[in-house]
Each structure stands twice: as C-alpha cells, then as structure tokens.
Write a protein that binds this DNA or RNA. Structure first.
Lengths: 185, 185
DNA sequence: GGGTGTGAATGAGTTCACAGCT
DNA sequence: AGCTGTGAACTCATTCACACCC
C-alpha cells in the first residue's frame, strides 16, 4: 500500500494533486489505508492505454529513422514499428529490424491495406508537412515528429515533437538570467 | 511590420497573448503600426540568449551520443560540443567532429579547467543520476537528458528531457479515448 | 483608422480543509 | 487514528476591452 503522501514524495508533486488527479478517473484508494500499489499500477496502465500494443509506421529512414528502427526500447514498451518508408532507392527494399523499407510513393496504399495507430516522421523539415498530411489521410491518430517545425494537423490528431535544438534554445533564457547580478530564488 | 494579429495567425495563439507576453520584456511595438519584424527578431534573440554561442559537454558516446556529435544542426544554431566523455576504452581517444573523446573519469578535472554552459547526458539510465551530479558539481547550469528518467538536481539547474518512448506513451491516452463511441469535440 | 500596452474580468488549475470511511 | 475524495478557496494565467498613441 502507498499513501498520496508517499506518491507525492517520490514524484515531487503535492499529495492533494495526486488525489485530485486520480479521483478524475475513479476511486482507487481506501480511506485510512491508501492505494494498493499493484492495483493502482494496473488501473493506470489501462487508463493510459499502455495495456496493449500499438502499431507504428516510420517515414524517413535516414540517420534518425535508422536509429529508431534499430532501437530496442520501443518494442519492449508495446510500440511496434511495422512499416517503414523512404524515398532513397538505395535503401528501399532493405530489411532492418524485421521491417522491409518501402518507397514513400507506396505509403498511402500500404497504410490503407494495413493501418497503423501512430506515425513517426523523421524526414527533412521541407518534407514533413506533406508526410504529416499523408499520414492523416490514412487515418493515423497520433504523430511523433522529429522534423524541426510544428506541422499543421486536424485537432483530433495528437502530435509530439522531438527537437533537441529547441530544447537547448528553451534553456538559454534561464542561463542568461543567471549571469545577471540580481539573482533571485 | 507585423501586428499582434498577424503573429497570432502564424503561431496559433491569441493576439492578446502575444501582446501580453512581449510587454513582459519591453515595449517593442508602435501603436497603429505594429512591430518591426527585424527589430523584434533581434530583441527576442537577445532576450532568449540566442545571440551568442554556448559551450556543451557531451557525456556518453554510444549510438545517441555519436549521432549528436555528428549532427550538424547544433553548431549552426550556436550550440558547440567542445568536450565528450565515455567509459568505453575502445572509443576513448577517437576524434569525432573535431572533439577528442576522453574517459569519463577525467570529466570533473577537464570541466573545471575548461568549463561549459550546458551538459548533454546520453548514458544508460542507471548511470544518468551520477553523471548529472558530476555535471552539477562542475557548475553546469543546464542539462539536456536523453536517459529515460527524471534526474534529481538543484532548482537552479535547468533540465530538458528527450524521451521518445514517453512521448508515445503520453499520446496513447488520447488514442484510447478516440476508440470509445462517445467522442466529443 | 489601426493597433499597442495594460488594468480589470474571467477562467483554469492547484491547494486547502474536512466529512466520512476503514 | 489515518487517509481518501471532494467542494470551497485561492492562485496563477489568459482574455477582454479600452485609453492612448501613431
């Protein structure tokens, strides 16, 4: 068993926040006792949709795309790359991590025959919007985008960005502040 | 010239938000005219601390670390990797992108001799906390972390996470919601 | 007229605090 | 006694709306 206070210490949020958030989805605790760890974990997995496997299509098998295909960490967490596309004829036809790379021109046809839940975009910035549009047309509901721009998409399509340069740029403001003499806590 | 309305359309926020945010740092606009694009850009660069170069130390030169070293996108944005460390004797001594890889045991000494502003952590999860602690001891003020955990650090040290699996996991909740019949807008 | 900068109004999200269950 | 779940209070952020300037 664990109390909201216990969870709060671990996750560095307030106990009230823990209780409020959990109460949004149900009543998982017992007064006077706290939460059953195993039961809570299972409920959270279910709520977050992590108790099943998700099918992914990768577009762009350059440096980043190849790293994604060869990285074992997705599969073990229930995320399975089942299709991969690129425009480079040199690599089309190659098989990486049990996925055969197809030419991007086949993308829409193949995704209609064999739909996926999530698209990963690892193409140059100039191509990214067109790829996102194509994925959306094929019914993809979530996109993980490595291209350094924020593509337009319908409101119901979830988007997450992976952009290390932007992450660095978002820190320099605070670094600059530290250099000034009047440093506050 | 561009108005807050124009900026709002491009960036998909409200005009009021644009004006409020900019007013926090100064008065960059002219009534009836809007903002001078060039001048505004320069002010924002300065405010964000992007008008100078930042020195970076990379820890962990595995797959991810190597990709970072070989990626040209950092340098062109003013982020220069000037030191790199790993524990693997096979790669210590190698020179990648004009940076010689040093053994991790030399990290603290070398960072004190030749300080950096930012640390990039690309080591396995179990090592990450120790690396972050070492970087903090050397006066690093910002950390970009690729390890899949949230390391503890002093409040004044900025931290950004790059975690594709977490990004995927944070989308599945919404995907699951879409599957249910009662779909709202 | 057109558009900024800003106090006031509104809204979203967090914290408080306590009734009630174990 | 101990701790959850939750309405009420509060805090912080966003939006409104308008005086003022170009």
């Amino acid at each position: 068993m664990v109390s909201s206070m216990g969870l709060a210490r671990i996750s560095r949020v307030t106990p009230a926040q823990i209780r409020k958030d959990l109460s949004y989805f149900g009543r998982f605790g017992k007064q006077g006792r706290g939460y059953n760890v195993g039961q809570l974990l299972e409920e959270l997995w279910r709520i977050l949709g992590l108790n099943r496997r998700w099918r992914i299509a990768l577009v762009g098998v350059g440096k980043v795309g190849r790293a994604i295909l060869e990285y074992g960490g997705f599969d073990s967490q229930g995320f399975q790359v089942v299709q991969a596309f690129d425009v480079d004829h040199q690599i089309v036809g190659q098989k990486l991590a049990s996925v055969t790379i197809r030419h991007a021109s086949e993308l829409e046809q193949r995704l209609r025959e064999d739909p996926v839940d999530i698209g990963i975009v690892a193409v140059p910035a100039v191509e990214a919007q067109a790829v996102v549009d194509a994925l959306v047309r094929c019914g993809v509901k979530a996109i993980l985008n490595y291209a350094p721009l924020c593509p337009r998409r319908p409101a119901h399509v979830e988007l997450r960005q992976i952009d290390p340069v932007l992450a660095l740029q978002s820190m320099t403001f605070h670094l600059k502040a530290l250099e000034q003499p009047a440093k506050r806590r």
